[in-house]
């Protein structure tokens, strides 16, 4: 290695470490505070305690919000995967003018600020007279999560060799069997990846959900903000720590199932 190469490698490492510290510090602080005994956010915590986790059990409104969020996230993910897969197949298998435009449109909610999206959806729902909170939330979350499904499945289908389906048919599979035995196993990583990202995006969403919740139906992030306003103690940190744990578990599942390298590829 020449001196410049060494300097370069050194510099890259410095930047990488700085970025990791910058990104991880808030998470570490949150977890530390959640296990502290102090009622205010003090670092380092005077002593360790589980009191904030115990308080979670007694906190009113938390369980319903969690249930709502998980339900919405699960349904939105399912709907997004089905619609996204159909859209991706159509986009990958046919050529028509404006195809790239459709791809851009379907993935655009990723790029739009949540507030813009929320206001637009709110106006749209008002216009068609949709007032049911749960339905509004679900539709809004499908809009938020569908880009993950379309983007991941579309690029996976772009790499899929459809001759494989022909090959399966010449070997005795009906067209439906060919899809089940060849297309699905080959797209499974893409389905798992998009499902996890869609689920997390929905669980985490605040900016769009705020327009569709009311006093009785709240998603978890919105309920958490309410707690933070009413009673700013480390209970919030405890909830956050649990969510961090959930993401970690999902990432480990992903890594085991298909390998992190392939997730970052798609």
């Amino acid at each position: 290695m020449t001196l410049t190469e060494r300097l370069g490698a050194f510099f890259v490492w410095i930047v990488a470490i700085a970025a990791a510290v910058f990104l991880l510090t808030p998470l570490v602080v949150t977890v530390l505070v959640s296990f502290g005994s102090s009622a205010v956010f003090t670092l380092p915590p005077p002593s360790l305690s589980m009191r904030w986790y115990q308080r979670l059990m007694t906190l009113r409104g938390l369980a319903p919000a969690l249930v709502t969020s998980v339900q919405i996230a699960a349904f939105a993910t399912l709907v997004s995967l089905v619609l996204g897969a159909l859209a991706a197949i159509a986009l990958a298998r046919t050529r028509f003018p404006g195809r790239d435009g459709v791809v851009a449109f379907l993935t655009s909610p990723l790029m739009l600020p949540g507030l813009v999206l929320g206001i637009a959806l709110l106006q749209g729902f008002r216009f068609i007279g949709l007032i049911d909170v749960w339905t509004s939330l679900l539709i809004a979350h499908v809009v938020i999560t569908i880009p993950y499904a379309v983007r991941t499945l579309y690029s996976a289908l772009g790499l899929f060799d459809f001759t494989l389906l022909d090959a399966a048919r010449t070997l005795g599979c009906s067209p439906a069997e060919a899809i089940v035995k060849v297309l699905l196993p080959n797209l499974a990583p893409a389905f798992i990846t998009s499902a996890i990202f869609a689920f997390l995006a929905s669980m985490d969403n605040y900016a769009v959900s705020i327009f569709f919740t009311n006093a009785w139906t709240k998603t978890l992030p919105i309920q958490m903000l309410t707690f933070a306003e009413e009673q700013p103690d480390p209970t919030i940190a405890a909830v956050s720590s649990l969510l961090i744990a959930l993401v970690l578990v999902l990432l480990i599942v992903l890594e085991r199932a298909i390998g992190l390298r392939r997730i970052t590829e798609v």
Binding site: T163, D166, A167, T170, G172, P175, E177, V182
Partner: peptide, 19 residues
């Protein structure tokens, strides 16, 4: 239909099942 014909095919790209 193809799957009932009893005609085997070796494709140009071989089309082996990668999984």
């Amino acid at each position: 239909p193809t799957h009932k014909r009893g005609v085997g095919v070796v494709f140009q790209s071989y089309a082996l099942f990668p999984h």
